[in-house]
Each structure stands twice: as structure tokens, then as C-alpha cells.
Design a protein around this nucleic acid. Sequence first.
DNA 1: CTGAAAGCGCTTACAG
DNA 2: CTGAAAGCGCTTACAG
Lengths: 321, 321
Amino acid sequence: MAATIRDVARVAQVSVASVSRALNGAASVHPETRARIAAAAASLGYVPHAGARSLSTARSHAIGVVLPDLHGEFFSELVRGLDREASARGYHLLLSNIHADADLAAQAIRAMRGLVDALVVMAPQIDTPALAAAIPERPPTVLINSRALPGRTGLSVDNHGGAAAMTRHLLGSGRRRIVHIAGAAGNIDARERLAGYRAALAGAPERVVAGDFQEESGAEAIRAFLAEGAEFDAVFAANDQMAFGALTALREAGIAVPGQVAVAGFDDVPLARHLGLTTIRIDIAQMGARAAALVLDEAQGAAAAPADLRIPATLVARTTT
Amino acid sequence: MAATIRDVARVAQVSVASVSRALNGAASVHPETRARIAAAAASLGYVPHAGARSLSTARSHAIGVVLPDLHGEFFSELVRGLDREASARGYHLLLSNIHADADLAAQAIRAMRGLVDALVVMAPQIDTPALAAAIPERPPTVLINSRALPGRTGLSVDNHGGAAAMTRHLLGSGRRRIVHIAGAAGNIDARERLAGYRAALAGAPERVVAGDFQEESGAEAIRAFLAEGAEFDAVFAANDQMAFGALTALREAGIAVPGQVAVAGFDDVPLARHLGLTTIRIDIAQMGARAAALVLDEAQGAAAAPADLRIPATLVARTTT
DNA sequence: CTGAAAGCGCTTACAG
DNA sequence: CTGAAAGCGCTTACAG
């Protein structure tokens, strides 16, 4: 078995209280005692049992992270940002199992009781009542890309601003008939991007077609459009994946991009740069770091008033517009 | 404060022992008692304090995950696979802070004492002595893509087999002068891929140029090669990123791919499919799930003998060869 | 079937 | 500066 604080106390011939104080750098420990304890700890290879400490102090130094089924860069960058800030402040990340619906999310959150000092939850697909029911009073929680909840800090991408900027960019370059391929139904990001597109149309005709954020749905949308002989000179997809699908469908149909039709996406995934796709860039790692910082401030009592914060969404013009 | 087991006991008018037994589904609890306890727990919104339970039972139901600075798909797929298996068996994932060197890795591992029942460690850049020093006797540990350690289970990509298969594929399609762009020095994956290339050359001339797994190093390598007037008809890069760099350099030089020079990579990142890059595919999520399964088997006493397991690496031929 | 008690490995007032 | 003791919230032999 691994050495416990008792073993160290025995070897150093002091009480466990002194060992605890010495190892935690408390003020009042005689230098000689401290040295003896350090030597004993080293000789035993003693490492404090973090779980026991957490029970005594009622702090686990862990942030619970509850995420939906995320892929690729988004997931890795988000976790990277969370980890960056958490590590810098001496916290671990406890990942919940990936959840698909509100019930699973609530269950994941419950399972973290006594395990974490703070919670970062991302649940873009869960509606307000279900979300409110799932989020407990404690520990402090920051919501990422989720519906707003009164009294809780929310952090999300500036979907509305980004979509409006893209729409204006397309209008500004002379496009008039801009088709928007919407994201998954019920998804808050999808909804806000659609709203941003609408708000910026400034009288240009609105034309929305349903998608589900998958590449194939972007291709399907455009194929259906072309089949019915619809006219348009720009496609603004609610994410890059669907824009890639749109590009494929346009290529199949022999339509020049951006000559005849401009194409734009949202997210700036790595592939977008390689394909020259005009899109909206978001600094996901920054969003993660920011979320961790906010929730730890709250957990440590330095709470700012709950707010609805936005991570900037920046237009990146490339060759498809 | 959140309700504790004491509160439930008081409301249900039983001892805490009975509450514990009832809520853990122990055999011997009178149905009526059980019902009263369930009702009390529900009315109080009681959720057991997982940290306290873990101290009593000496099981945390968490797997510590110690990873280097990973990006994109590799990271997300690995964590997805780990999470899939861990969740299925009722375990959480505790992410250590991302480590850069052996000292940080050892520190991350130490910080997990008392927090996890098992450890999954990936440290391809750490040499054998440092790795041996960092990995403790307990808890059970499975190594991913790391150097082999006696008595411990290792799981890694079949780098040698994959690289050999790719080399044979290039030879089989008539290429004779195959340049290998090696990965980062000291990295075990890089080393094994190089060895696989060498083993399969079968008398064809060996030509190795240094790289560091970054896209730019692949481009640099090819530019330098072309500048010195070297002759070659194939480039096999130790990962896809460097292969993309090579493609760029060849395009700049007006060299036809695959007409004059074939290009191949390793990893099959998403971009590879879009660019038509011939490469080696690895099922990263499967590697994660497998690692979690192995380490939990060991933690739960169903230990198989330590072994050196390989995740298959499959050749995917596309348009660059 | 149920309860009183010890124990998991720490921390922290409280005395001295 | 140091120690004895209580306590964090659970679980689990041990009695009954």
C-alpha cells in the first residue's frame, strides 16, 4: 500500500497534524521539524491522498466538464482552453460522459456531486426548461453555447453578429439572392445564426432551407434547390461542413464558385483554409479558457455578476466569395 | 448545503447504515424501509457525495488520463473512445493537465494519487528510463503509444507494419526512389515508422530526411531536396501534415503528383480524404476504448498478462499514388 | 432486517 | 511551535 500521512508521522516522530501543516506550507512549523518531515515523506515516497484531502477541505480542485457529442477541432480546442486555465490555477478537469439528451446531461451533472468545485456545461440542443431543471444550485456553473438561464453566467459564440457580418459581406460584394442553409432544428447556434442572417438582409429576399450541420445535408439542400430551378447567387451555410457539401453539389452541377455563386460557412474548421472557404472564425480555445476562468472566479468567491458573454466571431474572406 | 446521508436517515427515521444499504441496492433491506428511504432521499434531492464514498471504498470510479499536447481529431477521437468504454463501465475520465516533458508527466501522474483507480498514459516523446521513473507501481496503468515497459501493458499503433505496407505499396506501383520524411527526433512513432520503411525497402535505395511532424517541415524537406537536384519518384512522409507540406512544395516546383512523384502520409486525418492523399488509417477511438477496457480489467482484477498490443494500421490508397 | 461503531486519509480549530 | 481530537460523508464488518 501507498504510504499515508500516519506513516510519515511515525517515521518523522511527530503528529499527523504537524505533517499536514509542514507539507501544506503552513506558517508555524519549526524548521528542524519541517526538515525531518520532508525527509520522512521523501523516503516513503509519500504523496497525499487527494480524495481524502478533498473530503476534509470540501474542495476537490476539479472542474466538471459536461459536453455533448463533439468532434474534431471544436472538442480538442475547447478542452485545451479549459485545461490551460484550469491547470494554471491548480485544477483538474473531470470529463463527464458525453451526453445526447437532457436526461443524460442531468444524470452526468448529478454524478459529479462531491467530485467537483465548479461545472462547465455545454448543451446547445437542450431547451430552456430542461436545462433549468438539470443545472443544480451548486456548484457554480458556467454555460457554454447553451440557452440563457437567469442568474447564471453564459458564454457563447457571437452567432448573431457573425452571421450578420457574413450576410453583409455577401450583399456588399453584390450578391442579392442569398440562400441560408440552416443548422439542426432546436439547436441554439443554428437559431442565432439564422436570426443574424435575417437581421442583415436589409430587404434582400430571404430564402432558408433546412439542414442538420452534416456535410451531406448541405449537398442535398443545394441539389434540391437546383432541381426546382431556384435562382440564387450566394449560399451561406450555418457551418463549414454544410458549406463543403454545397461546394460539392455546385461542382457536380457545373456551377462556378465564386463566379456564379458565392459560398460561405461558419466555424473556420481546418479544412476551410485548405479549400479557400470564406467563413467565420471563432477562437474556441479562448472560449474554453474564459469559461474556466469565470467559473473558478465564482467558485473562489470572486464572482462577477452573472452575465451573457460573447466570444467574437470574425469574418475570414477567402476565395469562395 | 446539499443534503447528506444523515439528513436522509433522520427524515426516514432509520440509521445511516440502512440508508447506505438501501441506496446501494444491498440485499437485506425490508421493502417498506427501502420505500421510506427512497421517499426521503427524493424529497431532499439527495445525491451521494461521490468523494466520500470513494474514500470509504477505496475506489474512485475514475480513470486518470495523461496526454501530451495533442491536436484535432487525434485528441478528440482518443478521448471519445476512452469515454465510451469508461462510461459503459460506470467510470469517469479525469484529465491531467497536458504535459510537455517527462517531469511534467510525472508530476501529473503523482497529482492523481487517491483520485483514480486506473491510469492511461500517452507519452511518445519520453525515453524509457524517464518513463519507468514516472509510472508508479499503482494504480494499474496502460501505456498508449509510448516506449515499452516490462510488466506493463502497452497499446500502440502498428507503426512498423503500416509504414512497411506503404513502402511495399509504393514499390509495387513501380516507384524505386522513395524518400522518407521522418517525424520528430526522439518520438517513438517516428522511429517505428522509419524502421518499417527501412525494413520494406528490399534493396531499393534508402533516403531519409529529417522532419518534425509539422506541415512546414515537409515542405522544407522537399524544397531542400529539389534544390540539391536529388532524384526521387515517391515521398513517404511519417504523417499526413508533412505530406501536405510536401504536396505544396511539389506543386510550387511544377512537379506532377502522382505523375512524376507519388506522395503518401500516415494517420488519415480528415483533410487527407479531401485532398486525395494516400495514407495509413488508424482507428484512434478504438485505441482509446481498448486502453480503457484493458486498464479497467486490470483494476477490477481480471488482469490478463501484460502485453504489447497493436492497433492495426490500414493502407488507404487514394489519388496521390 | 437493522443499528452502533470503526474506519477511509486527510485538515483544522482548540489547547497548551 | 506542537499534539489530541473532532469532523468531512460515506461504507461495512460485527452484533443483535
